[in-house]
Design a protein around this nucleic acid. Sequence first.
DNA 1: TGCAAATCATCTGCTGTCAAACGATCGGCG
DNA 2: CGCCGATCGTTTGACAGCAGATGATTTGCA
Lengths: 156, 156
Amino acid sequence: MATTTKTADRARPTYFPRLAAERLDIALCRASAAVARAADTHAGEEGLGVGQHLVLQMLDAVGPCSQQTLSEELRIDRSVMVSICDDLEQESLVRRERNPRDRRSYAVTITDAGRRRLAEAQTSIPAFIEDTFQPLTPDERDQLSTLLGKLLGIAT
Amino acid sequence: MATTTKTADRARPTYFPRLAAERLDIALCRASAAVARAADTHAGEEGLGVGQHLVLQMLDAVGPCSQQTLSEELRIDRSVMVSICDDLEQESLVRRERNPRDRRSYAVTITDAGRRRLAEAQTSIPAFIEDTFQPLTPDERDQLSTLLGKLLGIAT
DNA sequence: TGCAAATCATCTGCTGTCAAACGATCGGCG
DNA sequence: CGCCGATCGTTTGACAGCAGATGATTTGCA
């Protein structure tokens, strides 16, 4: 067996690779946790949270949205979306106007300041991706993207 | 009915696919969240938490371990490992004996009851994996496993 | 030997996430 | 019109994950 009677044995059995090979779900979660941490760190340095960045990006891409729509499309819980929009509004990066057709919902709108902030934050994303996924070649990243797309139920 | 062609039923912009294609990190995190939820649900039905299952599995595979080693190899925070072992011990699935060579650490040992419980839980794992990763073919699952392995820094 | 530093398990506090409940508002139907 | 159910945003409470501090113990070094 691999059991060693010595305690100070340097070359450890390293059980983790075996686990990752057997349990695809665990491998996925562990990799995600590492990436999420890197993203949070990066976002912290940038001064704009990951969720806030995504919201600005979507608003810039598709125009004013309700928080509900933002939640659904960005896969962020709606109760979390509240504080994200609170912060963005407080920094005047978005405006919250009531939708006159349905006064329950907001029409969250990106401001000019928001667009500038977004452009600024966007510049550092490619380097972050490059850095985080460095172990993978560009081809492999495409593979991963395709596989995750299928897993997420995205019709291609 | 999906055939409702009413006013508000314009084919939704569905921004998410675009996001997932551009931001590999987000795609990874969203897929992971979905899988993690499925795993938690499955584990809940099985009555044995995911972490507890992993601990039993590792103990069965490599023999008695300290909580430290379990934490490192399973990528579970050591303060979380405390409560996992607490629960397992309370159900008599593991024993915590002090390591006589180093009385700071435990020698966490799986019991016969633990082995039975593990065997029981193991039987439902393949079906769970099959179900969760159904959108992927076996070949694609292997691809994904390889890619995640590289991302996790596992030497092949 | 004796003392400082490191290590293991544990505890505490903070943050982020999610479920459930709540007011406000809309739509439908008599 | 007036009521009922559904929806949007928000608040609250519970819970996991993680950083940092603590006590017990071991190890390194003079």
